[in-house]
């Protein structure tokens, strides 16, 4: 918990959105500020606000120019009006609450047939495949943000001994694939082209169209991976709609 809030930079993202940047590093305390400010604005939206998109160190707010102009006719531009509203909100301190309280356990099968790139990750870091598997499960990861695909969670940070740069060209990747890119780890909710190094696969569905909240993971969640066998994978695959 903290009530010291970070300094920020604010800039337009086109003519319908504004971005607030709280830092420029993948870092838990910067991201906690992003999540706290996301919750603050979600709970108290201003008139004309459309939605908010949190990322590693930024928060982006989309707004309706027509509504802003109507609600606040004195501003020189909708952008200036929104900037002022946000600056007022940011002047109110917020506490970093609820971050990390929600723990999600995710089974991963690290078997060769799913872990397409694990030999390369091991070789690059002078480890055995077994050591990569153990190290990947050794940390409780934070979900920093969602993006790229519906339900794709960017998590970190992996043990520095298993970091690996992403591929230079995207390749087709299967749904449920668990990957590493730099210090990040993530799961592909759908089959998709992608550049992350694939080290396993989960039978869990990260995305369920039938739910009111269709994604399994949210920014601020904590994730713990645990290894399962191929047999367990196939068993769980059939009854894994969360």
């Amino acid at each position: 918990m903290s009530s010291t809030n970070l300094s920020y930079r604010i800039f337009p993202l086109g003519d319908t959105a504004i971005t607030i940047e709280f830092g420029s590093a993948i870092n838990s305390s910067i991201n906690n500020e992003v999540i706290a400010r996301f919750q603050q604005l979600q709970q108290q939206p201003f008139r004309g606000m459309i939605e908010i998109v949190p990322a590693y160190c930024t928060l982006t707010v989309l707004y309706d120019i027509g509504k802003i102009k109507k609600e606040y006719p004195t501003g020189s531009s909708a952008f200036e009006t929104v900037k002022k509203i946000i600056e007022e909100r940011l002047a109110q301190p917020v506490e970093h609450i609820n971050v990390g309280e929600h723990l999600v356990k995710i089974p991963v099968c690290y078997a060769e047939e799913f872990a397409w790139d694990i030999p390369q990750v091991a070789a690059k870091n002078n480890l055995t495949v077994e050591e990569v598997i153990t190290l990947h499960q050794s940390i409780k990861y934070k979900v920093y943000m969602l993006g790229f695909l519906p339900g794709f969670a960017y998590m970190g940070e992996v043990d520095e001994k298993i970091t690996m740069p992403r591929k230079t060209e995207p390749v087709p990747i299967a749904a449920g694939s668990v990957g590493i890119a730099g210090v990040q780890t993530g799961i592909y909710p759908f089959a998709s082209p992608g550049g992350w190094q694939i080290i396993g696969r989960t039978p869990l569905k990260l995305f369920n169209v039938g739910r009111d909240e269709p994604v399994l993971l949210k920014a601020g969640d904590t994730v713990q991976f645990h290894a399962i066998s191929i047999d367990e994978f196939h068993q769980q695959e059939n009854d894994s709609l969360f």
Binding site: G14, T16, A17, A55, T58, T60
Partner: peptide
């Protein structure tokens, strides 16, 4: 760069 939101038209 660190991933951040983009917009239609970006």
């Amino acid at each position: 760069m660190i991933s951040s939101a983009v917009n239609c038209g970006t």
